[in-house]
């Protein structure tokens, strides 16, 4: 049976989305809702699937959490990159760029 687009997307997300979460933290600490807003759609199957990822990243030492007051309610948990998270992101980028080019090249073969 041929995989549908949803299945293709689910397969592509594995091993990629967690680095997109790390990349979203490169500019500074953010809270879950804010990260979900940026990544939901193609990168996240649903906003709720972000939280198992964040728990895993924290457990793996790639992100750390801190608490900040919010003007809109109770304190919020903010996620930030650890030095290990910065290194992991750099390693992913180094691998992703040639991978991305290779996939594009393969997909464009025979099209022109």
């Amino acid at each position: 049976m041929l995989p549908g687009q949803a299945q293709v997307l689910a397969n592509l997300r594995r091993g990629v989305v967690e680095y997109c979460v790390l990349a979203s933290l490169r500019s500074g600490e953010r809270y879950g809702f804010d990260i979900a807003r940026e990544l939901e759609g193609t990168l996240l199957a649903s906003a709720g699937t972000l939280y198992p990822l964040l728990a895993r990243l924290r457990k793996g030492g790639l992100v750390e959490t801190s608490w900040r007051e919010s003007t809109e309610g109770p304190p919020r948990r903010y996620y930030g990159l650890t030095p290990e998270g910065v290194s992991a992101l750099a390693e992913f980028e180094a691998a992703w760029v040639p991978f991305h080019h290779a996939v594009n090249t393969a997909l464009s073969e025979g099209k022109s």
Partner: peptide
């Protein structure tokens, strides 16, 4: 990590309500 995940979802709901209503919901 059940507790951590559910707490994250709870915070998301609070933030979403606050964002949608523009008030101190929660």
């Amino acid at each position: 990590d059940r507790g951590e995940i559910v707490d994250g979802l709870r915070e998301h709901l609070l933030a979403a309500i606050a964002s949608a209503t523009g008030a101190a919901a929660g």
